[in-house]
Amino acid sequence: MFKTALIGAACVLAPLSVAAQVTLTAETSSPGGGAHYVSTTFAAALDSAGVANLQMTEGATLTNSVQAVAEGRLDVTTAPLILPFLLSRGIGPYSGVGKEKGAELAAEIRALYFHAAAHQTFGYYDSKPVADIRKLDGLRIWNGPPRGAALTSGRAMIQLLGGIKDGEGYEGVQTPWPDAVSTITSGAVEAWSIPSALPGGREIQFSAAGAITLFDVPSDLLNSELGQQIVKAPGHAPFSVPVDVYRAAYEGNDVTIVTDDDTFDTYSTAFAEIVRASMDEDLVFDIVTAMLDAQSRFEEGAPMGPYLNLTFGDIDGVSQGACGAVKIKMHPGAIRAYEAKGHTVADCLRP
C-alpha cells in the first residue's frame, strides 16, 4: 500500500483557489481497477476546481476504509455497497464489531455519488486451459483478496459456474490486491475470478505474460434461481454489454472473449463514494458539483471511462443497487448538488 498526495495548483497561479481548498484523507483500491480510476479522477477533479486536496492512500483494504469513514478516522473512500450492508448487521468481515455497534456505524455513512466500475469475470491462461468452466473441481482458483466484497463476489462466481464452494470443491487462493497480478501471472493458480473494469488493467497485465481467455456467465446459469439471487444480492447489479463492444475494448491485447450469445453478461459490483454524515453540507455541495462538472474528464480520461456507470444524471436508487437490501443514504449536500444541476434523486436515498 502506498500514498499519493495530490497537491493543489501553485499559489502563484491560483491563490484564491488554493486558499479555499481543504485537505481531506481518502482511500481507494490498487491501481488497475475501475474503483481506483474513479477515486483518483475524482481527486484530480476536486484539485482542478480548487475545492479540496485529497491525500489518497492506494491499495487499501476497503473493508477497513468503510469502517474508518463511519468512525470518523477517514474522510472519503470508495465503497462496494455490500460493505455498508454487512456493517449495518455486524456480520461477515464486521462480525467483531457486533450488530448494535455495526448499525450505529452504518448510520453514519453517506453517499456522494454512485458507480459500478467493476464486473465479475472468469479467466485462465490459454497455455493451461480449463476444459469446462462448469467443472472446476480440484482447481486452485484466485477468487479475491483475503476478505471483503471482491472475495464474496469471486466465490459467488465459482459457485454459480461449478456448483462448488471454496474449500470444499476447489482451493480458493486469496492475496492482497497489490499481489493479485503477480500471483496470477506466476502460474500459482489455474484460473481466476476477478472484478474487472472494461478494459481491465489487471487483465491487460495478465495477457502481457501470455494469452488469456475471459468468460461471462452462460445465459442458463445467469437466469437460474441462483444466478438471479447473485445478481440481486446486496452490492450487486446486472451487467450487459454487446460482445463486439467488449472485444473491441481489448483490441491489441492477447485476450479472447467467450460468450454464449451476442452480449457479455454477468453481475457488477455496485459502488459509492462515501463520507461521514457529519461532513459540512456546503463542502459536500462543492465537492459533488465539481464531480458533476468533470463528466468529460471521467469519460475521456481512460478507455474504461464510458463504462463506469457513474451517476451524472437522475438517480433512482434501484439502478445503483442502493434502495433494496442496501439502505445507504446520500449526503444532503450531494442531493442539493444534483438538484442544482436539474437532476432528480429518489426519496429512498434521502436521509
Score class of each variant (00 low, 15 high):
residue 78 T to F: 10
residue 304 M to K: 14
residue 232 K to N: 15
residue 201 G to P: 09
residue 225 E to W: 04
residue 70 A to Y: 03
residue 157 M to G: 04
residue 297 R to K: 14
residue 215 F to A: 05
residue 35 A to S: 15
residue 279 M to C: 05
residue 158 I to N: 02
residue 236 H to A: 12
residue 345 V to F: 02
residue 305 G to F: 04
residue 110 R to F: 01
residue 8 G to T: 06
residue 78 T to Y: 07
residue 137 D to W: 00
residue 182 S to T: 13
residue 13 L to C: 06
residue 234 P to M: 13
residue 141 I to D: 10
residue 161 L to T: 02
residue 83 L to M: 15
residue 222 L to P: 03
residue 6 L to T: 07
residue 106 A to P: 12
residue 156 A to H: 05
residue 86 L to R: 14
residue 67 Q to A: 14
residue 117 A to G: 15
residue 307 Y to P: 04
residue 160 L to D: 11
residue 227 G to D: 08
residue 332 P to R: 04
residue 53 N to V: 08
residue 127 S to F: 01
residue 100 E to L: 13
residue 118 A to P: 00
residue 111 A to F: 01
residue 148 G to Y: 03
residue 344 T to R: 13
residue 90 G to D: 07
residue 331 H to F: 03
residue 326 V to I: 14
residue 220 D to P: 09
residue 250 Y to A: 11
residue 266 T to G: 07
residue 201 G to A: 05
residue 227 G to C: 11
residue 110 R to Y: 05
residue 242 P to E: 13
residue 312 F to D: 04
residue 207 S to L: 03
residue 79 A to T: 14
residue 149 A to V: 09
residue 169 G to N: 06
residue 335 I to Q: 02
residue 175 T to F: 08
residue 299 E to Y: 09
residue 211 A to G: 12
residue 168 E to K: 11
residue 260 D to P: 04
residue 158 I to A: 02
residue 325 A to F: 07
residue 340 A to D: 06
residue 87 L to F: 06
residue 268 S to A: 15
residue 217 V to F: 06
residue 316 D to M: 05
residue 236 H to E: 09
residue 260 D to A: 09
residue 272 A to M: 10
residue 270 A to D: 11
residue 16 L to M: 03
residue 184 I to C: 07
residue 307 Y to F: 15
residue 33 G to T: 14
residue 227 G to F: 10
residue 167 G to P: 10
residue 207 S to I: 10
residue 251 E to M: 11
residue 313 G to K: 12
residue 238 P to L: 05
residue 156 A to V: 04
residue 43 A to N: 04
residue 130 V to T: 05
residue 308 L to A: 08
residue 61 T to M: 13
residue 309 N to H: 14
residue 93 P to K: 12
residue 320 Q to E: 15
residue 118 A to L: 15
residue 79 A to W: 01
residue 132 D to I: 05
residue 304 M to H: 09
residue 182 S to D: 13
residue 60 A to E: 13
residue 264 F to N: 11
residue 323 C to H: 03
residue 204 I to L: 13
residue 253 N to P: 02
residue 290 A to F: 01
residue 69 V to Y: 06
residue 138 G to C: 12
residue 30 S to R: 08
residue 268 S to I: 06
residue 324 G to Q: 13
residue 135 K to Y: 02
residue 147 R to H: 08
residue 243 V to W: 11
residue 201 G to T: 08
residue 43 A to T: 08
residue 117 A to L: 11
residue 351 P to C: 06
residue 310 L to Y: 00
residue 151 L to T: 12
residue 92 G to F: 10
residue 38 V to N: 13
residue 141 I to S: 09
residue 73 R to M: 10
residue 44 A to V: 04
residue 134 R to S: 11
residue 114 F to N: 01
residue 200 G to M: 12
residue 182 S to W: 07
residue 225 E to Q: 14
residue 238 P to E: 01
residue 262 D to A: 15
residue 33 G to P: 05
residue 296 S to N: 14
residue 275 V to I: 14
residue 59 G to H: 13
residue 293 D to V: 04
residue 232 K to I: 00
residue 160 L to W: 08
